[in-house]
Design a protein around this nucleic acid. Structure first.
Length: 255
DNA sequence: ATGGTGGTCCAACCA
């Protein structure tokens, strides 16, 4: 089973890219973030025509997540229990016996800001949610735009970036707590080229300079991490005309 | 050294 994540920064704009990528990469599951459209505007028909099931938890202008899958998905969850949030950032679904949790983690703006506090509170609610999900699902994959670079290898210039947003100790500790639940960042189970990133700022010619971060992650439960055959970043869609600022990240599972 | 792009939607916010 080939599972991928992609922050598309508006599905209205990027639908042709997503359809093109589905056709060439042929994932079994693709989860999207920042679709930036209401659920009613989500173009299920285009995905059906491409041979995929598709569900979305949409929102106007900001956020919004979707799950595209070859197999039918069920048991959808769009909110953490006991965490009131109008922002559509979560979509969990079960596909062919695999529990898939699609996340668009808050960006946090800057360390110490109100948005940063929201991010840390959101991550705490995520932790509680995953604790329960892991009890219920042996085969669990948690993937999406985490807006956290796990360590210095995931940052183009760690000296310059320092402990700023996406790299602050509290964010990395929150990610560490998720991993402590029994999840593995499957990308790091394999040899990877240096300076492999999944996001490059549109500003300052980030992509041309490879000034990026690896903030799009695929975390797998023990059973799935063991079954993972490969994981990689597919940079190609970032070279296409009018690209998202993120590119797809993929994991192949022998299941 | 600074500032720079892009999406949504038309002023300003978000990233």
């Amino acid at each position: 089973m080939k599972i991928a994540t992609w922050n598309v920064n508006s599905l209205n704009v990027r639908l042709p890219h997503v359809l093109e990528w589905l056709e060439t990469a042929t994932p079994d599951v693709l989860v999207l973030q920042e679709i930036k459209q209401i659920t009613e505007a989500f173009d299920q028909e285009s995905f059906r025509a491409a041979g995929y099931h598709a569900v979305a938890s949409g929102q106007k202008t900001y956020n919004g997540v979707a799950v595209i899958s070859r197999g039918e998905s069920s048991d959808h969850i769009t909110d953490f229990p006991d965490f009131e949030d109008s922002q559509r950032r979560v979509l969990a679904a079960t596909i062919d016996g695999v529990r898939v949790v699609n996340l668009y983690v808050p960006n946090g703006h800057s360390v110490g800001s109100e948005k940063y506090q929201y991010k840390l509170g959101w991550l705490a609610a995520l932790h509680n949610f995953l604790q329960v999900e892991l009890k219920d699902h042996e085969r669990l994959v948690v993937l999406g735009d985490f807006n956290i670079a796990p360590d210095d290898r995931d940052v183009y210039d760690p000296e310059k970036w320092g402990e700023a947003i996406l790299c602050s100790p509290a964010e990395r500790a929150a990610l560490g707590k998720l991993l402590d639940l029994g999840l593995t960042d499957v990308f790091r189970q394999f040899d990877q080229p240096d300076s492999t990133f999944s996001w490059w700022d549109y500003r300052a010619a980030g992509f041309r300079r490879n000034a990026g971060l690896r903030i799009d992650l695929i975390l797998a439960s023990e059973a799935l991490a063991k079954a993972c055959q490969n994981s990689y970043v597919d940079r190609e869609p970032r070279t296409w005309e009018r690209p998202s600022d993120h590119t797809p990240v993929v994991a192949d599972f022998d299941i």
